[in-house]
């Protein structure tokens, strides 16, 4: 609970953050809201030698709706997502999922970009962005590039970001079709034991905490696309997953929950 010594650099813009990352290499970690990184540092499970604090980079925060795309700055807090009237109209799923993250203190500090970049399979927002078919914008020394959410999560707590790249923006389509987030946990503040996101009437379905990465429930999606009933689609929700075992659940129980919760999510989303 006592972190090791660490140097601190403040970056007031994405450009400055990229420069700092370039200077310090893989010994550096970006600090945004700190809700995942700081606990790991206090337990000395993460021991970066330099923290690059982007918390005050004004150009990385905000929600904008342009045509059929919602653009969210990576530093936008969960609380801002939760309480944005614009987002509630354009993509109520994302606003709702943000309201389910952690507790109010976490939601006031934690950021969308931080949650995605941390790539925790047990986190809520990665699955939401996956189900929505979102796109992530990474900025590095050579400029910006777009990464499809489906290509972003590469392993347990690993993403497609290069060490000198900063996640600057998240784009999701305007989505007001039937949606649901079924988050199953024992206390309100906890990570999901299993979560199921259904977006846009079943066009996108994603699972929380069912493997080493946030993942789409592609079996469910293709079953629905092929005309399967919601019940039949839910029955394949756990196919191909390798869920973890912990105090709350073993793999078999998680698979059971995935099927039950997918059925409930599809029903809430109005999927036949």
């Amino acid at each position: 609970m006592i972190p090791a010594a660490v140097d601190y650099v403040r970056a007031d813009s994405a450009e400055a953050a990229v420069a700092a990352l370039g200077e310090h290499g893989d010994e550096a970690k970006l600090l945004a809201g700190g809700q995942s990184l700081v606990p790991l540092m206090k337990l000395r499970l993460a021991t970066p030698t330099v923290l690059v604090d982007v918390g005050r980079a004004a150009d990385l925060s905000g929600i904008a709706v342009d045509g059929d795309t919602v653009s969210v700055g990576a530093l936008t807090t969960h609380s801002a997502l939760e309480h944005s009237a614009e987002l509630a109209a354009a993509c109520p799923l994302l606003a709702h999922v943000a309201s389910q993250v952690g507790d109010p203190a976490v939601r006031h500090r934690g950021t969308l970009g931080g949650s995605l970049a941390h790539a925790d399979p047990a986190s809520d927002l990665p699955a939401a962005v996956l189900a929505l078919g979102g796109t992530l914008v990474a900025t590095g020394p050579g400029g910006s590039r777009e990464i499809a959410a489906t290509d972003f999560f590469t392993g347990f707590l690993e993403s497609a970001l290069a060490v000198d790249e900063v996640l600057t923006e998240v784009r999701v389509p305007v989505s007001t079709g039937g949606w649901s987030y079924q988050k199953f946990n024992r206390r309100a503040q906890d990570w999901a034991i299993v979560g199921v996101v259904v977006a846009e009437g079943g066009a996108g379905v994603a699972l929380v905490n069912m493997g080493s990465t946030p993942m789409r429930a592609s079996g469910v999606e293709s079953a629905l696309a092929g005309g399967a009933s919601a019940g039949d689609a839910a029955a394949v929700a756990a196919d191909g997953t390798e869920p973890p075992t912990d105090n709350n659940a073993d793999g078999a129980y998680r698979e059971h929950l995935a099927r039950v919760l997918t059925g409930r999510a599809l029903a809430e989303a109005g999927v036949g």
Binding site: D103, R187, A188, N247
Partner: peptide
């Protein structure tokens, strides 16, 4: 306060040891 067969406490933090909050 779960211990495994090796005597390791598997609930040594407030994420794994479920003290209820006001929400519960």
């Amino acid at each position: 306060a779960v211990y495994d067969a090796d005597g390791q406490l598997r609930a040594a933090n407030l994420a794994d040891y479920l003290v209820p909050s006001a929400a519960e």
